[in-house]
Write a protein that binds this DNA or RNA. Structure first.
Lengths: 204, 204, 204, 204
DNA sequence: TATGAATGAGCTTTCATTCAT
DNA sequence: GATGAATGAAAGCTCATTCAT
């Protein structure tokens, strides 16, 4: 008996899946991947260890799922926001703003996102292709904006691919400083700092 | 009977210690900390597992030692190079150059350095204090240069602490792209890109 | 759904716990603590190594549990039997009888009990306090009987604390001889020997 | 060039052997057999680990040697003292006195002696035959005295073998109490306690 | 579907013993 | 003879994963 295209089973499944991922995010963020045990996650989710395996096929799988979930959401927010801006300068500002704000609001996800950079980069082959793709997609989105900016003369001639990654690096760096408590400024101030630095660096 | 201030024993000890660390660096770089086993390191060094424990008291100990070793060397190179430059602009250029070149030349170390950023940041308390200190020392060195630049009017008024970290982030980002094979340009080109971006961002 | 105050889980847990302890007792008795491996115990219990750790948190823990188990049982039997006797002479006789018979019937436990005396005595600090307490409790029980015997004139004035320990030493000595096969006499004969010796030594 | 029947080499060998055993006794007494490492012993003796193996063929071997050394000395003192007494009562008194005093004076040896009883008894097959023999020899010595006492009417008809062991058990028990600090009395008092108890128990 | 007991491979670490110097 | 670096066999313990209930 499908309801709105989904059977009752599927609804329950989705519910449990989301619940588990929520628990997993907290645990992974706090302890990191290796120090987290499947039991930790199960306990945090209020289910038994065996149940975890009904919804995810391995501990690593939960991790990728958590990463994917955040990246998807972040990507959606970026797209929505960029669509509402016209000028390249505003789009870039929006990109920077939205990312910093997203990570600021969900530090658990940032911890996962960030620590994955380390190991995922050390062993790119172990990372599912779609995760790498999502990282790259973000860069490409930004790169497209940069290219348009160059076309319309707002941005000087630069290597857009490298510049796009560089901007992401700056953003990540700021969040790290915030999460580590090195930055005592308010978010707006940090956002402006990045935007200012970037714009001076790339403006025509 | 000491020779040149070192006994035979000390020479052997240093030799083995270095040899083991060399092996450890390769293994850690390739597999990351958790996936590396002490046996891997021992095998790579051509000794037995027990021997490893004659020179390092734990697997984690080897890791910190490897990290410390690279950071020390990098720090020394930076200091030497900065000392030979006068103008803030040249010092900053030198800083960027030397770091990129150092990591370019020793990618194994970079992998360790970089992946440690992830976990060390997730669990700062597990990292020996001297390691954190070495990371910060680098930032402080750069910050001092920025401050002098501001004093002599070459650099505009900016938050030097944040800017220093931002520059390091850009550098790290470029290396990641190189190591991952995303950047096909030659090192010089990448170095110039960063220097250009940075200088525009901070110049008066 | 609890049955008779115990859930299914608890029943299984108790069953396994007892089963494991039985295996552990055999292994420890045969090989001693150090020569016994957790794998030995697991194999003897017909389970895998990991299972052992579901019920006991360490090898040492199993050992203390085995010791405690026997001491508790022995203590209960002594109390029950002493309660059914009135005259100090009969109580002392009962004490000697019950201990010798208990150890005679459970030589595995005696081996554990006895070998623990050695190491527990060499490093008293590593022994859980409750184990030491149980050893002392036995001595105190006997001492109380001796004191009553003195009060009622059946036993001469002696140092009851030392005498109590001395009686326990004699009992232990007899068991050792039996277990080592040095004594070819039947149990009754050995019991009478000890009782006779003790009574002559302490009677008024 | 043999001197007094011994070559220089042999003298040195004996010296080192004794020196090592002294160190071993201290270490074994303090930590017990298993917790003691060969390195502990070597360090305590001021030599290197390898040297230990020039004089003893294994860690266990040192242990047996330490045990044998003490037993031999104790045996000699007992023989000498018994020879100087005539009456069975005095011989028994002397036996008890000398053992308690010997152990009182050399608690390190007692710890080894005592803890060995535990494991040596649990695994009699692992104990060298000569060690068991030395234990038995002591009992036999005492038994002979008891038999003579019975012959001359000073001691009642008892099982001399069991009585001999029982007396040893009482002695051991007293020492344990002293070493553990349970007995606050002076040695003389404890000696008299045992002698009194024994004599009442066995006197005709 | 949910459970959690059971598994066992695999990890780090220790240390008695050997042997080239 | 003396050394101590090197060995490698074990051992205790963990935890991702499975599966009978």
């Amino acid at each position: 008996m499908p309801i709105l295209g989904k059977t009752r089973k599927e609804v329950i499944k989705e519910f449990r899946t989301a619940e588990l991922m929520g628990a997993a995010r907290k645990v992974f963020a706090e302890k990191g991947f290796h120090a987290s045990t499947v039991d930790d996650i199960a306990t945090a989710a209020g289910v038994s260890k065996g149940t975890v395996y009904l919804y995810y096929k391995s501990k690593q799988d939960i991790y990728w799922a958590a990463l994917k979930h955040g990246l998807t959401e972040l990507h959606a927010e970026i797209q929505a926001r960029l669509a509402s801006e016209e000028a390249p300068e505003n789009k870039i500002r929006a990109f920077i703003e939205i990312k910093i704000q997203y990570f600021e609001a969900d530090r658990d996800f940032f911890r996962i996102y960030f620590s994955e950079l380390g190991s995922g980069f050390t062993h790119p082959d172990q990372m599912p292709h779609y995760i790498e793709e999502m990282y790259l997609e973000q860069a490409r989105t930004l790169e497209a904006v940069l290219q348009r900016g160059i076309q319309c003369g707002a941005i000087r001639e630069i290597r857009t691919d490298t510049a796009a990654v560089a901007i992401s690096d700056l953003i990540r760096g700021i969040i790290v400083q915030r999460v580590l408590g090195w930055s005592k400024k308010d978010v707006e101030s940090d956002i402006n700092f990045v935007i200012d630095l970037v714009w001076r660096g790339i403006a025509a």
